[in-house]
């Protein structure tokens, strides 16, 4: 097993574990928002922002926590045959079928990136080019130059009207982490087939 692959798996595992452990505690942020919502409703006036905020926190919770849940093996599989296979056999099948999962995540990421570009006011069909230009403008001309490239910033269709790009950026980031984790699982399975363990 090349050292680079081992190193990759180690780094990704550690990073996603740290991010996942952070996401894990978002549960209490969620509880806090909802409890505040009940308290303010009962004793003061109901708040505009709690339900939507809770929804945003929930997105961060399951998207950023996703890779860690893969590490923990929480994602169910149908083990009609799988359950009876040896670890090596499972690794052989997984090495192939994980590409289906990766493909799905890839398409998801593409959609997330183009939707994020939209939330920054880009209506074209080449979101990657847009982000390239945006980053370039930021590097060369600072925030003002980047701001000029951005159009109408998408807001949530509610009376509170928060900007939606932060939640879309979280989705992009989380799906990327999922992809990195799945590639790590792929390497791990290759090692397992060779009789090594990482």
């Amino acid at each position: 097993m090349p050292e680079a692959m081992r190193c990759y798996v180690r780094i990704i595992d550690r990073m996603n574990r740290a991010i996942g452990r952070f996401a894990m505690y978002l549960l209490f942020a969620l509880i806090g928002v909802l409890i505040w919502s009940s308290v303010s409703k009962t004793f003061f006036t109901p708040t505009l922002w709690t339900l939507e905020t809770a929804q945003f926190v929930m997105v961060a919770y399951y998207v950023l926590g996703g890779p860690y849940s893969i590490q923990m093996g929480s994602n169910v599989r149908m083990d009609f045959f799988y359950g009876d296979w040896s670890p090596r056999r499972r690794a052989i099948v997984d090495v192939i079928t994980i590409w289906f999962l990766l493909f799905y995540l890839g398409v998801l990421l593409w959609g997330a990136i183009s939707s994020t570009a939209y939330s920054f006011g880009y209506f074209g069909t080449e979101p990657f080019k847009f982000f390239g230009e945006l980053i370039w403008a930021f590097v060369t001309g600072g925030p003002d130059a980047a701001g000029e490239l951005m159009g109408y910033l998408e807001r949530s269709p509610s009376a509170w009207r928060p900007y939606v790009w932060p939640v879309k950026v979280i989705l992009c980031f989380g799906v990327t982490l999922m992809i990195l984790q799945c590639v790590a699982e792929f390497f791990r399975d290759i090692a397992r087939i060779r009789g090594e363990d990482i």
Partner: peptide, 15 residues
């Protein structure tokens, strides 16, 4: 039936 994670199987077919 291949035993891949359920969400991966469903999501792949969908996309």
């Amino acid at each position: 039936l291949t035993g891949q994670r359920v969400f991966g199987a469903i999501g792949f077919v969908a996309v």
